[in-house]
Design a binder for these strands. Structure first.
Lengths: 140, 140
DNA sequence: ATTTGTCTACTACGGATGTAGTTTAGTGAA
DNA sequence: TTCACTAAACTACATCCGTAGTAGACAAAT
């Protein structure tokens, strides 16, 4: 995949807005950013231009004299990249990171249990044969 | 805390070495880096100088004409900072990140269970009264 | 003491990133 | 059709980061 697009924090923020809006003009994106941290119009414009170069977004159409932009990449693919790079900082293993999250209370045992359940379910969904195999075994 | 030291990836790698060695000269740090990715001596020197400025390390003593350096900050405090900043990219919540880790297989159910157990234990250790309270209640 | 090698201190530099000004062009109103 | 707006396109620039060269200090060996 050309999923290997690297985004900076600010680029990520813009992408986040585009993912939510589906499609938007520079002006719309800019005004979506909370006033306290809202950068100049041209700053947003620059970032979107860079996203275009990286092929993370493309011009979808023109309304009046304003261009509309839409995402070309998925949130998921970007998150994957981000997480991979982050884990590399910790030697590539997720364990210490999660341990830290638990220690600091950023993640509770309840969170984990909920996720665990979800993981088990999607695991089963991904491999339905297992269920059949299981049923067979328990039937006998 | 002055825990608010921000480290770049390379700075973090150097700190990692220093945390492991306890104390080391520029040369020692440099030679600890795997050859494939080993930068020039002066590059490591520059990074260590920057770490000095940030007060992440200090000169501990001098051996021959070489300075020895030792960490001034803990691994934990740095990890905390890193994780916080990373989570900010995802809107500050750890949940989606962990969900992603599970989905991608970077974290297994076994990992989670082990962590869960550890979390429960340290939780109990941190609040021993709970055990007493529990005992009292069940006694009655 | 002079030489030789290593270390420190200082300087440099290109690419990335956040930030925004300036110039040019297109659009709708008068 | 011309004017006033607004957006696009281009340019600029400071800071950070990885990278390393060079000059000068100092120590060990001869």
């Amino acid at each position: 995949m050309k999923t290997t697009i690297r985004l900076t924090p600010f680029e990520l923020e813009i992408m986040d807005l585009l993912w939510r809006l589906g499609e938007a003009s520079v002006r719309e994106v800019q005004e979506e950013i909370p006033e306290e941290s809202r950068p100049a119009y041209t700053t947003v414009q620059t970032i979107i231009q860079r996203l275009e170069q990286k092929e993370a977004v493309r011009r979808s159409r023109k309304i009046g004299n304003a261009l509309m932009f839409e995402p070309l990449i998925t949130r998921k693919s970007v998150y994957r990249r981000l997480i991979d790079e982050f884990l590399d900082l910790f030697g590539g293993s997720a364990q210490p990171v999660v341990a830290h999250l638990l220690e600091s209370g950023k993640l509770t045992l309840e969170d984990i249990k909920a996720l665990e359940k979800r993981a088990e379910e999607s695991d089963a969904r991904r491999r339905p044969e297992s269920r059949r195999a299981l049923a067979k075994r328990s039937r006998k």
